[in-house]
């Protein structure tokens, strides 16, 4: 666990640094692989950048709307760099909406664009795991297994390390291996397989890993809420994956 990286007088928050690096590396990879998904690398970059900027502004505005009095008393806080004054859900909704508008205006094809974004999402998922290692968040349940780690007063499952390992496997699984192989012989309107495969694998990984977590929110019978949500996402993703594969079967 290393939440702060002290370099001289500067204290850098390592979880945030890991996320930033993850987005940068993921975006670089997505740009490089975009042609294999029949997507335009520049458009992928612009789309991501638009979504990120809109997401950050949206997250702050959404937070301000929830606590208007606090900002009326301290208007300079509107431009505070503190990430604790952001609403992540509001930011995600507004960022996705901005991406949708951008994609619509530029007439970007839906499935190839989503496919081309999967390397970015997969690298970001690894970065989230690394940020959890740095902060000690998303910690595991108590265990006697030899690879358990001492964290927050107990020997626990190294759930953050499991998270990074599985996210790395998922990245390996969704990467197109050779030029032109990602789309097979289908036309440019057929696609979405990489995206739904990524979503299926990620939902499956979350569902599996949540069983080792020590910070789960649970229902009355002990069932973990995140697993139930992941199961629903897995069901939808597998169904969509099946449908996209059917289209691909018909066109190849």
């Amino acid at each position: 666990m290393l939440p702060i990286l002290q370099i001289g007088p500067f204290a850098m928050q390592t979880p945030g640094l890991a996320l930033l690096l993850g987005i940068w590396l993921g975006l670089t990879l997505a740009e490089r692989l975009a042609p294999r998904f029949e997507a335009n690398a520049n458009e992928i970059y612009n789309l991501t950048f638009t979504a990120l900027i809109a997401g950050i502004i949206g997250a702050r505005l959404s937070y301000v709307l929830q606590y208007p009095d606090a900002f009326i008393n301290s208007p300079l806080s509107l431009i505070s760099l503190n990430p604790a004054l952001l609403d992540p859900i509001g930011g995600a909704v507004i960022g996705a909406f901005a991406a949708l508008i951008y994609g619509n205006r530029k007439k970007l094809p839906l499935w190839p664009t989503l496919d081309a974004l999967t390397p970015l999402l997969a690298v970001a998922a690894i970065a989230v795991g690394i940020s959890h290692i740095a902060s000690g968040d998303a910690f595991g349940m108590q265990t006697d297994l030899p690879w358990g780690i001492e964290l927050w007063g107990l020997k626990r499952h190294p759930s953050q390390i499991y998270e990074v390992i599985l996210a790395s496997f998922i990245l390996g699984a969704i990467l197109p291996k050779k030029e032109g192989r990602a789309l097979g012989k289908r036309g440019s309107m057929v696609g979405g397989r990489s995206f739904w495969l990524f979503l299926s694998l990620s939902a499956g990984a979350r569902l599996f890993l949540e069983g080792f977590r020590g910070d789960s929110l649970t229902l009355a019978n002990g069932m973990r809420i995140a697993q139930v949500i992941a199961w629903v996402v897995l069901t939808v993703s597998l169904w969509m994956l099946h449908k996209r594969q059917n289209v691909e079967d018909r066109t190849s």
């Binding site: 349940m141 108590q142 499956g204 569902l207 599996f208 949540e210 069983g211 080792f212 977590r213 020590g214 910070d215 789960s216 649970t218 019978n221 002990g222 069932m223 973990r224 697993q227 139930v228 199961w231 897995l234 069901t235 597998l238």
Partner: peptide, 20 residues
């Protein structure tokens, strides 16, 4: 089969009281 096994895992890995 994947969905069935996943549902079983949700059931098996339900958090014992106090574990989380």
């Amino acid at each position: 089969l994947i969905l069935l096994l996943s549902a079983a895992w949700i059931w098996v890995s339900a958090a014992p009281e106090g574990s989380t």
